[in-house]
Amino acid sequence: MKYDIVLCGVGGQGGISVSVVIARAAMAAGLDVKQSEVHGMSQRGGEVLAHLRMSDKEVASPIIPRASADLILAFEPLEALRYVPWLRKGGAIVTATAPLKNMANYPDPDAVVAELRKIPGAALVDADALAKEAGNARAANVALVGAAAKHLPLEASALEAAIKELFARKGDAVVEANLRAFEHGRRANP
């Protein structure tokens, strides 16, 4: 078994930090894990990208080859579109729908969403709304992990344990809100 995830978004969205949740759950399940991030400049607003690979055999490359990712987990729709060449045939996309238009030449958001819908296995999720419902607007990234949970070769309980671990030092309220966001995400893409 191998499972490759491309996580992508925009700098400052905090999206990449949730790859830790998935990575920890995978390690708890006894899988080998490699994770690669591009985080060069601290300026906000550029593209950010992480590759997360897990396998019951040893993982070799920290970079996922093109056309072989099992899942694209995107925190922004244009970024989801950018990494489609990494998706394998039959792979899944789970993406937030809210565009982040911090560039002059951002294409028509409806066209972006329409492009994504053409791809079988794409789930478009209003992660911001799910996070707000859960009581913490900053939990959109965790809501997305929830929306992707059915695809992941990991138990939901393992993911929940990793969420608890990641947010533990921020206090119970934050942990609870993130667990709720995760649950809302799961229900949004059952």
């Binding site: 906000r44 093109r66 056309a67 072989s68 489609v84 060449p85 998706l87």
Partner: peptide
């Protein structure tokens, strides 16, 4: 992969809308 003479992996068709780059910016 290409240097080893292996064929490209076949993925999903490329989107017809090429996404423009998103350059970094000074913080607000």
């Amino acid at each position: 992969r290409a240097a080893l003479g292996l064929p490209e992996r076949e993925g999903v068709p490329a989107p017809s809308l090429p996404p423009p780059g998103r350059p970094p910016q000074l913080c607000v």
